[in-house]
């Protein structure tokens, strides 16, 4: 087991290097630092000195990957690639445009992000599985049919509508919870209710339908027929046999997103004014803070890869047929 995990982690390294190369190409080769400086300082009437100053402040005034002017190892270390891209492996993300340390910001903002994303994830899983089981239990009846119709309708509504509509209905019309904001400690609770509810509802259509398909596929298998033939009541068949076997595909989809919960949700956080990583990213995109976007891309891929490893491990835990060799 340990052997396997170590090997999986070693596999992750080339992928992270690949991600790093992609972001390096995107941010420094497609557009040179000069282009970026000109864009940020305004295209017209920008002096070469201003560009040089902008680049120097951010450390973009070095050669891209190879420095002729330096000696020895410094030929490679005093470059943009080494200082900006390779340094990310040591979680050194540098500074944002407002002068703050990105790594520090990320640490501080992870918790608020998690405070919405985790309840949405857990509550969602329970709610979706429950509804999918109900639909599977009443399969081929009106309950099932209208359930699927409802799912398709829910899927077809933009997530922005859920947020704007929910804010309007619950906060503005009924004054139940504050429209947006965030507090520390237990105080945060009243701010989190609305985003969590909306998060669960906006994912309901697609997930419930997907779980229903999984349950029905499982129910068509031979062991279910055997269980029914033994005379087991439908509820036992459903909970003890179908649900347990259906957990394998459901887990695959669920475990992989767990690490990504740290990243939060881009739009929900910015609509509800929650100081998490999602709103951090949006602010960076809007103010064209390239360093922050680069750091978030790297962090996102890292978390995704961790999710993949966790998925593989969780397989062995729920499905004893799978051996990690």
């Amino acid at each position: 087991m340990l052997n396997y995990i170590i090997r999986r982690m070693l596999y992750a390294i080339p992928i992270l290097i690949g991600v790093n190369l992609i972001t390096f190409t995107l941010f420094f080769v497609v557009n040179t630092p000069d282009d970026m400086a000109r864009m940020q300082l305004g295209i017209k009437r920008v002096t070469p000195e201003a560009i040089e100053k902008w680049k120097h402040e951010r450390g973009y005034d070095k050669p891209l990957i190879f420095s002729e002017a330096e000696q020895g190892a410094a030929k490679f270390t005093h470059t943009i690639f080494f200082e900006k891209s390779a340094a990310m492996f040591a979680f050194d993300f540098g500074q944002a445009d407002d002068g703050r340390d990105i790594a520090y910001e990320i640490k501080a903002r992870m918790l608020p992000s998690l405070a919405i994303a985790l309840p949405v994830f857990l509550l969602g899983l329970v709610v979706y599985i429950t509804f999918a089981l109900v639909m599977a239990f009443f399969r081929a009846t009106y309950v099932d049919f209208w359930g699927v119709v409802l799912c398709v309708a829910l899927m077809s509504i933009s997530s922005l509508f859920y947020i704007i509509g929910g804010q309007f209905l619950i906060s503005k019309l009924w004054h139940l919870v504050p429209i947006s904001g965030y507090g520390s400690g237990l105080d945060a609770g009243k701010f989190l209710v609305l985003p969590v509810i909306i998060g669960v509802i906006s994912g309901a259509g697609a997930s419930t339908r997907w779980y229903r398909t999984i349950f029905l596929e499982e129910m068509g298998k031979d062991y279910v027929r055997t269980a029914r033939a033994k005379g087991l009541p439908e509820s036992i068949v459903l909970f003890r046999h179908v649900l347990r076997n259906a957990m394998i595909p459901i887990l695959t989809g669920a475990v992989v997103v767990i690490p990504l919960l740290f990243l939060g949700s881009l739009i929900a956080e910015s609509f509800f004014g929650i100081p998490g990583l999602g709103s951090y990213t949006i602010d960076a995109i809007n103010s064209q803070d390239f360093a922050v976007v680069r750091a978030m891309v790297f962090l996102g891929s890292l978390l995704y890869i961790i999710g993949l490893i966790l998925t593989d491990i969780s397989y062995t835990l729920v499905d004893p047929r799978i051996r990690l060799e």
Binding site: I15, G18, V19, I22, T23, L26, F27, L260, L263, L266, T281, I285, V293, R294, M296, V297, G300, S301, Y304, I305, L308
Partner: peptide, 13 residues
């Protein structure tokens, strides 16, 4: 490698 970058972030970049 490509799919390990979260979609929105890659698109944004």
């Amino acid at each position: 490698t490509l799919s390990s970058i979260p979609g929105v972030l890659l698109i944004a970049a």
